[in-house]
């Protein structure tokens, strides 16, 4: 297939075939764990822990023992490599490591000989990232001595088209809010970077969305307070379809519970990866044009 012929569904179908293969046959490291290679590593890294000069291998070397080296033909069967080939053919030629999660079950010693088995865990995308549009590919790797698992690694890479971004949407085409004299103060506030909440001047009740009459005391004497802009996620969703005017999908929409005790709907920018009910969020104003600024949200790390 040429690049132009690969669709998302084609990619995912090819990926499913690799996933279906499950874990690869254990592949032995080129060499048993040995002191000279450890010594090279200690010298380059600058590691001085004396245990590593007396027979114990540094845990951080787990992957080193089974690296393929210069002979690229050897790795053709590895799930990660096969997945990378699919994306290369589909035009996603660049790669970037994003996550590496290693667990060491026990120290390994000079003389032991580790094997590596790998399986493709997941492929997620396409996703527009800072470097371009791509897919996140996660593999699960297991090192064993004999049948005993000594270390594992979950490894995620982004396979992407550099700079290839979806055509930028014209965000000014979003659905415009109706405003009237009861609600204008809110939008005047966002334009100034203020998150305003209606306050009843008579009884002090806070309220959002606003209205002309206090539901508690029926006074029509209203003002506002400026909220702290801090809140937590009360609920959320990820909108995938249909297309929305002025939005680049998917987007994460949330119901934010403000510190002041009221709720407000907004988009959580970049929220898809990190959001959960209860996540702390902070308001982030997004100016659409001179007429409209939206109160949006960002997850607080």
């Amino acid at each position: 297939m040429s690049t132009a012929e690969w669709t998302h569904d084609d990619i995912m179908a090819a990926v499913e075939e690799i996933k279906a293969l499950g874990e690869s046959e254990p592949k032995p490291a080129r060499d048993p764990i040995n002191q000279p290679m450890i010594n090279n590593w200690l010298e380059a890294i600058g590691e001085t822990d004396p245990r590593y000069t007396s027979g114990e291998a540094p845990p951080a070397m787990a992957q080193v023992w089974t690296m393929d080296g210069l002979d690229h033909t050897k790795r053709a069967a590895a799930p990660l490599h096969r997945t990378m080939q699919i994306f290369d053919e589909a035009g996603f030629k660049s790669v970037l490591g994003t996550n590496c999660d290693q667990v060491y079950l026990r120290p390994v010693e000079v003389g032991e000989h580790v094997t590596l088995s790998a399986r493709l865990d997941s492929v997620v995308g396409p996703k527009v990232t800072g470097v371009g549009e791509g897919y996140f590919v996660t593999t699960e790797n297991t090192w064993r001595v004999g049948d005993e698992v000594v270390a594992t690694m979950s490894f995620r890479v982004l396979k992407f088209k550099p700079g290839a971004r979806k055509p930028a949407v014209d965000k000014t085409r979003l659905v415009r809010p109706q405003m009237n004299q009861d609600t204008a103060y809110f939008w005047e506030g966002t334009a100034l970077g203020e998150l305003r909440i209606q306050k009843c001047n008579a009884c002090g009740e806070l309220r959002h969305p606003p209205g002309p009459m206090c539901p508690t005391c029926h006074a029509a004497d209203r003002g506002y307070v400026v909220a702290s802009g801090k809140g937590t996620v009360f609920s959320f969703l990820v909108h995938h379809a249909p297309q929305l005017p002025g939005k680049e999908l998917p987007i994460t929409l949330a119901l934010i519970e403000l510190e002041e005790g009221l709720r407000m709907v907004g988009e959580v920018q970049g929220g898809r990866e990190s959001i959960a009910i209860g996540s702390p969020v902070q308001v982030a104003f997004e100016k659409i044009d001179d007429d409209l600024t939206l109160a949006q949200w960002a997850v607080v790390e």
């Binding site: 845990p59 951080a60 970037l96 490591g97 994003t98 996550n99 590496c100 999660d101 290693q102 667990v103 060491y104």
Partner: peptide, 8 residues
Amino acid sequence: IAGCALRL
């Protein structure tokens, strides 16, 4: 060291 999770 029992585990090491990196976000790059």
